[in-house]
Computed example of a mutant assay.
Amino acid sequence: MSNVLFSIFPNERFVDLGLYQYGWEQCEPLHSYGPYARNHYLFHYVISGAGTLMSTDSKGMTNTYHIKSGEGFLIHPKQVNTYSADRDHPWEYTWLEFDGLRVKEALELAGLTMDNPVYHSNARDLSLELKNEMLYIANHSDQSPFHLIGHLYLFLDYLTRSSSSRRMMRGGKLQDFYIREATSFIEQNFQNDISVEDIAAFCNLNRSYFGKIFRDAVGKSPQEFLISYRMTKAAELLKLTELTIKDIGNAVGYPSQLHFSRAFKKTYGISPREWRSENKIASGTGKGKMG
Score class of each variant (00 low, 15 high):
265 K>M: 14
42 L>T: 12
156 L>N: 09
47 I>G: 04
60 G>R: 13
147 H>L: 06
230 R>N: 03
258 L>T: 15
117 P>Q: 02
120 H>G: 05
167 R>W: 01
138 A>T: 02
138 A>E: 06
14 F>G: 05
75 I>A: 07
247 D>Y: 04
243 L>S: 09
149 I>A: 05
207 R>Q: 14
198 D>T: 11
1 M>A: 12
274 E>M: 14
91 W>R: 05
139 N>H: 12
286 G>M: 09
242 E>S: 14
232 T>I: 01
188 Q>I: 00
5 L>G: 00
181 E>V: 07
60 G>W: 12
87 R>F: 08
37 A>S: 13
62 T>P: 09
122 N>D: 15
82 T>N: 08
148 L>W: 06
286 G>L: 04
246 K>C: 06
219 G>Y: 05
265 K>I: 06
263 A>H: 10
179 I>D: 01
119 Y>N: 01
202 F>Q: 12
217 A>N: 12
196 V>I: 15
243 L>G: 02
58 S>A: 14
270 I>W: 00
82 T>C: 08
123 A>F: 11
230 R>P: 05
190 F>A: 11
1 M>G: 11
12 E>A: 10
129 E>S: 13
110 A>R: 10
147 H>W: 04
178 Y>L: 08
262 R>Y: 07
160 T>L: 01
249 G>K: 06
95 W>S: 10
39 N>W: 01
120 H>L: 13
108 E>I: 07
169 M>V: 07
124 R>I: 14
291 G>V: 02
15 V>T: 12
226 L>H: 01
147 H>T: 15
164 S>L: 15
189 N>R: 07
221 S>P: 05
206 N>W: 06
31 H>D: 07
134 M>C: 03
188 Q>V: 00
179 I>P: 05
233 K>S: 08
151 H>G: 02
224 E>F: 03
71 E>K: 04
211 G>M: 07
90 P>A: 05
284 G>H: 15
152 L>R: 00
100 G>F: 04
278 E>K: 15
274 E>H: 11
178 Y>C: 07
250 N>L: 13
207 R>Y: 04
91 W>D: 02
7 S>D: 09
168 M>P: 08
160 T>C: 13
26 Q>V: 03
276 R>V: 10
98 F>P: 04
100 G>W: 00
90 P>I: 03
181 E>R: 12
94 T>Q: 00
121 S>Q: 09
86 D>F: 00
236 E>G: 11
286 G>T: 12
186 I>T: 03
183 T>Y: 01
97 E>V: 03
118 V>N: 05
174 L>P: 00
207 R>I: 08
218 V>R: 03
191 Q>S: 13
59 K>S: 14
129 E>V: 06
98 F>E: 02
